[in-house]
Design a protein around this nucleic acid. Structure first.
Lengths: 351, 351
DNA sequence: ATTTACTGGTGGAACGTTGCAGCAAGGCTA
DNA sequence: TAGCCTTGCTGCAACGTTCCACCAGTAAAT
């Protein structure tokens, strides 16, 4: 045990514990320079580090935020976790990591745990349509930033939503394929239960409508049976399976919009499994722009999320919420996505 | 604030706080069944959750472990983080995430922070040759599992090392290429400063020697200048750059052993940049077997690490260390890697 | 000379647990 | 009947902070 306390520092510096505490907590100007340096020297000499548990018990504050992601094994969430942690670290906050596997039960369990740990700010990457399993805690004062989810009717005022504009993103992706002459386009996703996925699907159909086409003609592949929930690890496997099934059909699509990059990479693998060439026989668009999108063969055309800005914004909102729990209703943020054209998309092959 | 305390529960149940505490902490048999159910009912009715900070202050224990990885944005570390978190969760532990970016300064800073937070168990994925920047804390009682690093002379007895046998892994990879007839083989890595990388390099040269070849003839590309540290994000970029440089040389290699899968995927991209075909013109072997290895085109031949077992083992060791801080010197673990042959390797092209 | 204000501190009660020591009541032994 | 053990519970101090209230000393204002 380390266990050098504020009392020992006080004795060493020949002051009272209160003075040491004052020194530590932003009121060093309330003492003579001479005292100040005596305290500083004592702290240094003894290698004193404040006991965080005691501090938290006393103040009710701590410097930890929670992060709940579907699975940090998915590179998109991995990157997000890293950037959020980075943003947090700069301000002296630490990040507790939770993998929900998209399971509402686990999600709720995690938030309860975090609350019991005295954590008052959480970034929840849930995108479940309803957050009601979590609202009691928000009412109790938990600062919550919902990531990758747009504001829904009935959301409490205290809730901040940060998301890319998923409809616009999917629209971008789909319009890109349409412009390349593709007409038989499939939308590949797991179940469409989550908000962001529904938004993306909406963007998909809107692009059809704007092109004067009937979206009903588009193929939607959403995991066959609704055997939810599934982890994000399987997104790739899902895409592969989707590609296999879609390409075996008589009127196989020439373009595929995947729900995210992992799925798109799976789709690409599936296309190759079928002996076809990605970008020539079948075009694929992803979503996220993970690092690997550019490394794939062919490099993946995708919709980029400004992940660094989003992570920074998520932390900032959380932070101001923690500092001023009763602050007014907070703004939700809807970022602009960007289409990154690479080689996984090309002109529709002529029949 | 939630803030229902053990006192309120006690009053509600018409017992003393001590009794409630006894109920909560494993001594429920020390009271009449009737009392027990009264307490249980009160807890339930009030929605009481123990205050963890207070508990930690009192007992010095908490249920949190630290995880320090180079960068969770790297899918390998992402997967590892997820599995460690899963193993921890089962036993009621939470995981605090830290990205060191392979910077010893940051590493040390993180461990200090974790220690100040009262965390007594950390999985450190460092692989820096020396852990001396961290030893004072181990001496002070911090449970430390070093992951991806083999035991070194001078390591304290309390330190547990868990790693795959990197030498064997790299040997496997290299022998595979040699067997396919490759003779001009390059080893691509960032700097070779870390233990695991040196081990892998050793396996690489050993395979040459066993084949009766002079390892001095092999090309070693290790990042040009030693401009360390670099984040793992850049592993791919590094590989790409390496491939470009290596393939521009007069006697270009026909086989490349990459330090890990991200690097290998970068190398593959670089090979394609040069207009060559991976697996035919140039063979590539990775290390780790991340999920994406199988999705790449062509799928990546690689050395698999038994990541799930390693994560579980890491947690178990940590846990027993936390429960019995003065336990005897602990075993280090050296797991067996496995070569997974896919299509990124093929027979050496004839000249 | 008295009040008022400020400066540079100190004292001590919390924060919510835990766990040891103790205690009342009943039962057993001698 | 005294002594002692056991059962089932309670009292209280401690864990290491913080921060409000207070205080002694000096200086300025009345």
């Amino acid at each position: 045990m380390a266990g050098v306390t504020i009392y020992q520092v006080a004795r060493e510096a020949r002051v009272s514990p209160s003075t040491v505490s004052n020194f530590l907590n932003g009121r060093p100007e309330r003492m003579l320079p001479e005292t100040r340096s005596r305290v500083a020297a004592a702290i240094d000499r003894l290698g004193y580090r404040p006991n965080r548990a005691a501090r938290q018990l006393r103040t009710g504050q701590n410097q930890v935020i929670g992060l709940v992601v579907p699975s940090v094994a998915n590179p998109f969430w991995g990157s997000f976790a890293r950037m959020l942690e980075r943003a947090a670290l700069i301000e002296g906050y630490r990040v507790l990591l939770c993998n929900s596997e998209r399971d509402p039960e686990r999600e709720r369990g995690y938030l309860d745990e975090l609350w019991a740990d005295g954590i008052r700010g959480v970034v929840l990457c849930s995108s479940l349509p309803s957050l009601e399993h979590v609202l009691p805690l928000v009412d109790a004062g938990l600062g919550l930033v919902a990531f990758d989810r747009t504001a829904q009717a009935g959301d409490p005022a205290a809730l901040v939503n940060i998301s890319v504009n998923n409809a616009v993103g999917a629209h971008l992706a789909t319009a890109h394929l349409l412009q390349l002459g593709h007409r038989r386009i499939a939308f590949v996703s797991g179940s469409l239960r989550s908000v962001n996925r529904r938004d993306r699907f909406r963007g998909f159909t809107q692009a059809f409508e704007e092109a004067g086409l009937d979206p009903a003609g588009a193929v939607v592949w959403s995991g066959g049976a609704e055997q939810e929930p599934y982890g994000d690890l399987d997104a790739a496997e899902l895409g592969r399976k989707a590609a296999r099934e879609l390409l075996a059909a008589p009127d196989r699509p020439t373009g595929i919009v995947a729900i995210n990059d992992m799925c798109a990479l799976g789709v690409s693998a599936g296309i190759r499994d079928a002996g076809l060439a990605v970008g020539r026989d079948v075009s694929v668009v992803g979503f996220d722009d993970i690092v690997l999108a550019d490394l794939a063969a062919p490099p993946l055309t995708t919709v980029r999320q400004p992940i660094a800005e989003m992570a920074a914004a998520a932390f900032q909102h959380l932070r101001s919420r923690i500092d001023a729990p009763e602050g007014g209703p907070s703004q939700s943020l809807l970022m602009r996505p960007e289409l990154v054209v690479r080689a996984s998309t090309g002109p529709a092959p002529r029949e």
